[in-house]
Amino acid sequence: MANAHAPSNMDEFLKGLWDENPVFVMLLGMCPTLAVSNTVMNALSMGLAATFVLVMSCILVSLLRNFIPKQVRIATYIVIIATFVTVVEYVIPAVSLAVYNNLGAFIALIVVNCIILGRAEAFASKNGVAKSALDALGMGLGFTFALLCLGVVREALGFNTLFRDTPWQFTVFSPRFEPWAVMILPPGGFITLGAWLLFFNWIKKRTKRTTSDEVTAHGS
């Protein structure tokens, strides 16, 4: 896993998906992750909206990185992010009113999503445009992936469907399955995310154990 060579563009893109997944590894952007992952459609639309804001903001921050004075950089980043969120807030109801009503205030709250400010500050302000865009895209898709992980579990157990209220809706279990109402309510969000974290921790612990058995030479 440890890369001896300088990270290529592909690595910048891929790290957001798994190694540095913003939700499962870095525990950022928890609020939207929990709030709008009750159905797959909500999770997908939220993930894509956040990805759009993330990529656009990081491109702009990276372009302007030599012009922004250091003292006011955070305020500048927030204004840049808020601008793109406002764009999204007006585009989503134009495309689909149902999605807009489901996401509610959480579209506006993309502004305070710490993933976006985090990437702008930690990566886009120090790297070129292409790299920043790839990094942002990777992080955004990693965020979408995490939302989908939660959305699939919560919708399948809570409604017994996938892709509810869309033409692709289908039933997961037999029709006699009694949906667990708690999964679509707030507690379900916490418990599902906790369970996913548990699962990923367990996998990580297992792989670490097997690799440490094989590699005994130098400790990291």
Binding site: P186, P187, F190, I191, G194, A195, L197, L198, N201, W202
Partner: peptide, 16 residues
């Protein structure tokens, strides 16, 4: 494996 955020979230779920 449960230590850390996973446990906190599950407890938060029960609290919720």
């Amino acid at each position: 494996a449960v230590k850390g955020a996973a446990l906190t979230l599950i407890v938060a779920g029960i609290l919720s």
